[in-house]
Amino acid sequence: MTTTTQTARDGENRARKRLGTELSFWGFVTPAMAGLVLFMAIPMVWGFLLSLSRAQNTIHFGHFIGVRNYTDLLTDPEFLNSLWTIFVFTLFIVPTTFVFSLWLAIAVHNIPRGKAFFRTVFFIPTAVSYAAASLIARMSFYSGQSNGFANHIIGLFGLAPIQWIGTASPPWYWLVLVSVRLWLQVGFYMIIFLAALQQIPRSLYEAAALDGASGGFTVFRYITLPQLRAATVSVLLLNLIAAFQAFDEFYNILGGSGSSSGNIGLARPPLVYIYNVALSSQDFGRGAAGGFIITFIIVAFTLAQSRLFGFGSAKEGR
């Protein structure tokens, strides 16, 4: 009798424990899973079905037209032009950001005093929104009028005011777009490099000095840079993805207001193109197809880059 009760109680406890684990498992996992399904999986599948449908002024799929949205986009000179635009932008912004942020990180790393101060100062622009920074650039810094900040500065050297945003030759608007992005993102990548720089053991530099490695560049080339490999790859990858997704500064600096389309025709990145197709022209089928094309391109470039740097290969583990 006693034994039976004991066994029953043991079983009860074990069952209760198992149930407790199971419950907490589902308790923790369900909200995250529900979020993923609700906000990622369903929209992705929905978006894919939309991209195969004619969905004009509606987000209901059903009027299937095969891959016509895709072929329409890939034969549209405007869309191809936007891909070219973002390709050139990426080609320029990724190495520039890399060089500037690494240079800043090394400079901040090596100053004897006030490291925390400079680190903070260079990082702060990361907290500024692209929309706000774009408006500052457009309306005050690079304003085309003679009282704009940039024009005031060049005026001190006796130069005539420049139309920074509205003219195509010379294409000064690229300077505006690039400098806004550099201003906002260099600090962030600098922090990544700074963290990696602090990880490099001092002994490596001491050993190099003993072996007679002289000159800052030799040490940088053979010790610092190889030690920063992991940080370099992540900076390049994040930077590449961010560049392909550029929207805010193009839309806010070049875009128009009210019934004016502004100067966006000068440099329309694919996301602005897709935004116009989906939200202005209300063609959600083509918009969704554009989204999938961009995703595909980003994934392809990311994989190619990882391959190039051997990221995630067997060698990485050692």
């Binding site: 195509a168 030759s169 389309s261 025709g265 000068l266 329309r268 202005s280 022209s281």
Partner: peptide, 15 residues
């Protein structure tokens, strides 16, 4: 409108 605007932009701004 967007197609035509792009073309006019190319004509006016890019020659």
């Amino acid at each position: 409108t967007s197609d035509l605007t792009s073309s006019l932009t190319n004509i006016v701004k890019l020659g």
